[in-house]
């Protein structure tokens, strides 16, 4: 599996999910922020997919089984807390991963050095909202805890080694757990104690095994492009 494809698909799919929020956010500032993050991720996706081939062919003409993104990023938006929990888990992972890649001097060093600046902003945004929701009202606390619990099982997959990436995966996992634990505790939330690797989710997305909502997401994303074979836009 191409490492660029795995990282590119992560960014592409999460960007799409965030794009679904446009015009639906709880405050205008969040319409701006979520679109901003979605755009950063789409930019990363385009750079990464272009390393592999034609970005549009890869995005619009592959079927579900050929996508290599994590199952975490394809999870439906749910309520705002679910979206924030997904952002917290993923942006923390991405920041540590890109940090290592930028320092490593390998194939992805340049790209990672640029992306890590964007990702630092994404992580900050997710952390701030985790604090507000976790330590806000009773209702927001309950919703944020539920979201963190529900998505926890998809987190183990992030630390399955990806071939072609020169990364210390164990250090990545430890760093991630430490960072996320600190934020959840500050937010008065409980770190879930259930397994981070469900039998199905561990490493599955990277092998093209996805969850049910993903197929429907792709159907929507690809239908227009597929309806006009060979057309340019």
């Amino acid at each position: 599996m191409s490492a660029a494809l795995a990282l590119g698909d992560d960014a592409l799919v999460l960007s799409h999910r965030l794009g679904e929020w446009a015009g639906h956010a709880p405050v205008l500032e969040e319409d701006v922020a979520l679109a901003n993050i979605a755009l950063d991720l789409l930019g990363q996706a385009r750079t990464l997919l272009s390393l592999v081939g034609d970005e549009d062919e890869l995005a619009y003409l592959r079927e579900e089984r050929a996508f290599r993104n994590l199952q975490l990023v394809e999870q439906p938006n749910g309520d705002f807390a679910h979206t924030i929990a997904r952002q917290l888990y993923f942006s923390t992972f991405q920041r540590l991963l890109f940090g290592q890649l930028a320092a490593g001097g390998g194939e992805f060093a340049g790209l990672a050095a640029k992306a890590v600046k964007e990702v630092a902003y994404h992580q900050d945004h997710a952390e701030q909202w985790t604090l507000r929701l976790g330590d806000g009202t009773e209702e927001s606390h309950r919703r944020m805890q539920r979201a963190c619990d529900a998505l926890w099982r998809f987190t183990g997959e992030m630390f399955q080694p990806v071939e072609g990436l020169d990364v210390d995966w164990e250090a990545l996992r430890e760093g991630w757990l430490e960072s996320v634990t600190a934020v959840l505790e500050r937010a008065t939330l409980t770190v879930p104690d259930t397994a981070t690797t469900g039998a199905w989710s561990a490493g599955a997305g990277r092998q093209g095994l996805h969850t049910e909502p993903f197929g429907r997401m792709l159907a929507e994303m690809q239908h227009l492009h597929r309806s006009h074979p060979g057309a340019s836009w």
Binding site: H16, L39, L42, R46, E55, A59, E220, H225, S232, W233
Partner: peptide, 10 residues
């Protein structure tokens, strides 16, 4: 969510 190319989507 239905934009036909990644450039147009961005």
């Amino acid at each position: 969510t239905r934009a036909p190319s990644l450039r147009r989507k961005a």
